[in-house]
């Protein structure tokens, strides 16, 4: 089921891919002196499911926000299918075919499930002021409704079509958000923690849906904490820490690297982090930061390739 490539991609940060759909160059974003994102070069392969992992504050969501136009970078440029995507507003990014979901689901609770879907349909005549008043948008609306119902059936939400989206469970909202993104026929789907807060019984079906996106020819990029999830479905994994890409590779290869896994995923990522009023880490968190830093330094001193 893994998409095999004619050429083997080297497992190192910033590795070239044979057919990248998104290419990022020297992107940085600082918040008050802290480098939240600092990525020199990163490519996402077309048709792959790429998992983006890293501890809290590694800059994954910030990178997502930058790529989709929800945040502005300090420096850097990136392209989508060769077209520059930097400096575009979120809606322009979405219209070009890079569609995202959110960590906290943004299902529109006071609209019906069906309206959530129809809202996402692109190029609607009835969405223009004049078009809404005098245009005939009924036929287009009908077509969009058909398409929406097909997608809802695929995501097992068709029974809920006429309920308010607020009535859905957490997992169903994630599904709705994914289905809604598909209404736009995207090229790249960016999922921010699609499994977070989802009933374990639903995760398997969610995973299958993510895989089905790839099988339909879409490129999927997703942020995730859970190593098992990543191992299961991703074709490629990018590890971020402190804003940088510190490793890239096949998931099996990465999970063999105990140092990376422990430092960034295993023992620490669930601890609550503490900061004082000035934003400096205190107590356990301060020790943790020191520990991570020394671990990283030690690894580099030993000449270890972090991505090995």
């Amino acid at each position: 089921m893994r998409v095999e490539l004619p050429v083997e991609v080297p497992a190192q940060p910033g590795a070239r891919k044979p057919d990248p759909v998104l290419v990022i160059d020297s992107i940085t974003r600082s918040f008050g002196g802290v480098r939240a994102v600092d990525v020199a070069h990163l490519e996402f392969q077309r048709g792959w499911i790429t998992g983006l992992i890293g501890p809290n504050g590694a800059g994954k969501t910030t990178l997502f926000n930058l790529l989709t136009g929800f945040d502005r970078p300090d420096t850097g440029r990136w392209t989508f299918d060769g077209m520059p995507l930097s400096r575009l507003a979120p809606h322009q990014v979405a219209r070009r075919g890079v569609v995202r979901t959110f960590q906290l689901t943004k299902a529109l609770a006071k609209l019906t499930v069906l309206d959530n879907m129809r809202l996402a349909a692109p190029k609607q005549t009835g969405e223009r002021f004049i078009g809404a008043l005098i245009g005939s948008w009924g036929r287009q609306e009908q077509a969009n409704t058909c398409k929406a119902m097909e997608l809802l059936t695929r995501f097992q939400l068709d029974a809920k079509a006429h309920d308010l989206a607020g009535c859905l469970s957490g997992g169903q909202r994630k599904l709705l958000e994914m289905a809604r993104a598909l209404m736009m026929d995207p090229t790249v789907v960016m999922l921010d923690e699609p499994m977070a807060g989802v009933n374990p019984a639903l995760t398997e079906s969610l995973l299958q849906h993510v895989k089905s996106l790839r099988d339909d020819g879409m490129t999927v990029v997703f942020v995730e904490h859970d190593m098992d999830v990543i191992r299961d479905i991703s074709d490629w994994v990018v590890v971020m820490a402190q804003g940088r890409v510190i490793a890239e590779g096949r998931s099996e290869a990465l999970s063999a690297n105990r140092a990376v896994v422990d430092a960034y995923l295993g023992s620490h990522h669930d601890q609550a982090l503490e900061f004082d009023a000035d934003g400096n880490p205190v107590g356990q968190t301060a020790m943790l930061v020191a520990e991570i830093e020394s671990e990283l330094e030690a690894a580099i001193e030993r000449g270890q390739d972090l991505s090995a």
């Binding site: 918040f31 008050g32 002196g33 802290v34 910030t62 000035d278 934003g279």
Partner: peptide
């Protein structure tokens, strides 16, 4: 991401 406040440490 939390902004640092260098002016206060000074």
């Amino acid at each position: 991401m939390r902004p640092a406040r260098p002016e206060e440490s000074g």
